[in-house]
C-alpha cells in the first residue's frame, strides 16, 4: 500500500447504505470487474462511469450501513477507488473493506469538500491534507493494518497458512 495517497474526491452524505452502493439485483455476479460496473449505481446511475482509478470517496458518518454484502467493498475496490474517508464506517463494511485491501480512514470532512477537490492522505503521519486545511485521523489497529498491507485477507491467510502455489 502507498504510504501517501493523492486523489480526486467524490463527496457523499450520511448513512450511505449497502443497497445504494451495490443494489441487491447484482448480487449473483461473481466477477469483481463486472461488479465495478455497478458501484454506487443506486446513488447515481452514472456514478460507475464517473469513478476513475485513484479516486477517493469522502462521506459523512455511517458509510456502508446495512447488508453484509462484501460486493459493496469489492465493487469500489475493483472500480479503482484508492481509499474511503468517512465520519464513521458500519461494522461489516469496515471489515469487508479491510479484507479487500481497501484503505479506510475515519475523518469527518465531507462538509469541507466538494466533488473534484484533490486531497492527500498520509498513512505514516495519519494526516489528511485538503484545500483549506489538514486533519489527523486515528491509526488502524496494527493487525488490521497488516491485512491491508498484505493486499487483503486472502494473501494474509495464504501467508499465515504457508500456502505458496
Amino acid at each position: 500500500m502507498n504510504k501517501v495517497i493523492k486523489g480526486r474526491v467524490w463527496v457523499l452524505g450520511e448513512d450511505t447504505d449497502t443497497d445504494v452502493i451495490y443494489p441487491g439485483k447484482y448480487l449473483p455476479i461473481l466477477d469483481p470487474v463486472e461488479m465495478a460496473k455497478h458501484a454506487l449505481e443506486g446513488y447515481d446511475p452514472e456514478f460507475p462511469s464517473k469513478l476513475k482509478e485513484g479516486d477517493i470517496i469522502v462521506a459523512g458518518p455511517g458509510f456502508g450501513i446495512g447488508s453484509s454484502r462484501e460486493q459493496a467493498a469489492t465493487c469500489l475496490k475493483a472500480a479503482g477507488l484508492a481509499a474511503i474517508v468517512a465520519g464513521s464506517f458500519a461494522r461489516i463494511f469496515f471489515r469487508n473493506a479491510v479484507n479487500q485491501g481497501l484503505p479506510t480512514v475515519q475523518a469527518d470532512i465531507s462538509d469541507k469538500l466538494k466533488d473534484g477537490d484533490e486531497i492527500s492522505i498520509d498513512f505514516d503521519k495519519c494526516l489528511i491534507s485538503f484545500p483549506g486545511g489538514q486533519v489527523e485521523f486515528p491509526p488502524l489497529d496494527e493487525s488490521v493494518q497488516k491485512i491491508i498491507e498484505a493486499g487483503g485477507l486472502i494473501p494474509a491467510v495464504r501467508s499465515k497458512l504457508g500456502i505458496k502455489d
Binding site: 462484501e70 461489516i92 485477507l153 486472502i154 491467510v157
Partner: peptide, 29 residues
C-alpha cells in the same frame, strides 16, 4: 455471511454478520 445473523440472540447466543472473504478465511482456519 448475512447481516441479520444477530438474530440468534433469541436463544441466548451471540452472533454476527461478516463478509464472504472473511467466511472463506474462517472455513480455512
Amino acid at each position: 455471511t448475512d447481516s441479520h445473523t444477530t438474530s440468534y440472540g433469541c436463544v441466548g447466543a451471540i452472533s454476527s454478520g461478516i463478509g464472504a472473504t472473511e467466511m472463506a478465511a474462517l472455513w480455512a482456519t
